[in-house]
Amino acid sequence: MTYDPKLPADQGLIDALHVTGPSGEHADKLMLFGQFVGSWDIEWSGIGLDGEPARAKGELHFGWVLGGRAVQDTWIMPGRHEPVASTLRAFHGTTVRFYDPDLGAWRSTWIEPVNARVRRFIGRPVDGDIILLSDEEDPWLRWRFTDITRSSARWLGETSYDNGATWVFDEEMILTRRSR
């Protein structure tokens, strides 16, 4: 059977995957990332493929999944209605995050088919921020949510080539919640 884009989309996956809120005995812990549920605009800045500073606009969507036991997000850069700059390393990926009570932290997996990347992170709250660390392969990655409010946040991406002794800034995203 081949895919026919003229046929209506099957809602089965969406109905089975998405739910309206947290569930289970760790519902309170789920709010670390549950606070982001909704849609956001992104102002991205970093270094372009040409080595020069670059800026772009994107979009971010968070939602409850897997029976309310996890939070999933989708990051789209540039946004679906934005021009694609030839100097920007575009990405369109998703993260599934869930609280692991045995670890006392969040397990988080980033999947990005555009650049063929998959990375696993462990996330924890630290002094009002959220820090996610991927140290299973080189280089190490550290992603941080900072300056978190109900309507905005700052996301920082950093890389370490010496097992976390020093960190190099890669990119920043200013997140602004879309009004409902």
Rank of each mutant, 00 (worst) to 15 (best):
K57A: 15
K57G: 06
K57I: 04
K57W: 13
K57L: 13
G58F: 01
E59A: 11
E59D: 12
H61W: 15
H61R: 10
F62C: 00
F62Y: 13
W64G: 00
V65F: 13
G67A: 10
G68W: 12
R69P: 03
A70I: 00
V71P: 01
V71L: 08
Q72W: 14
Q72F: 09
T74P: 03
W75Y: 13
W75P: 00
W75S: 04
I76H: 11
M77C: 06
P78T: 01
G79K: 01
H81D: 15
H81W: 13
P83N: 03
V84P: 01
V84K: 09
T87A: 12
L88D: 02
L88E: 03
A90Y: 05
A90M: 10
H92C: 07
H92K: 02
G93S: 03
T94Q: 11
T94Y: 11
V96E: 10
R97P: 04
F98V: 00
D100F: 10
L103Y: 06
G104Q: 06
R107L: 15
R107T: 07
R107D: 15
S108D: 13
T109M: 12
I111F: 15
I111Q: 11
E112Y: 11
N115E: 10
N115I: 08
A116F: 14
V118R: 12
V118S: 11
R124S: 09
P125L: 09
V126T: 02
I130D: 01
I131L: 14
I131E: 06
L133V: 12
L133K: 02
S134W: 14
D135Y: 13
E137P: 05
D138A: 15
P139F: 07
P139N: 09
W140D: 03
R144V: 10
R144Q: 15
T146A: 15
I148A: 05
T149L: 09
T149F: 15
R150D: 15
R150L: 15
R150K: 14
S152H: 12
A153W: 03
R154S: 12
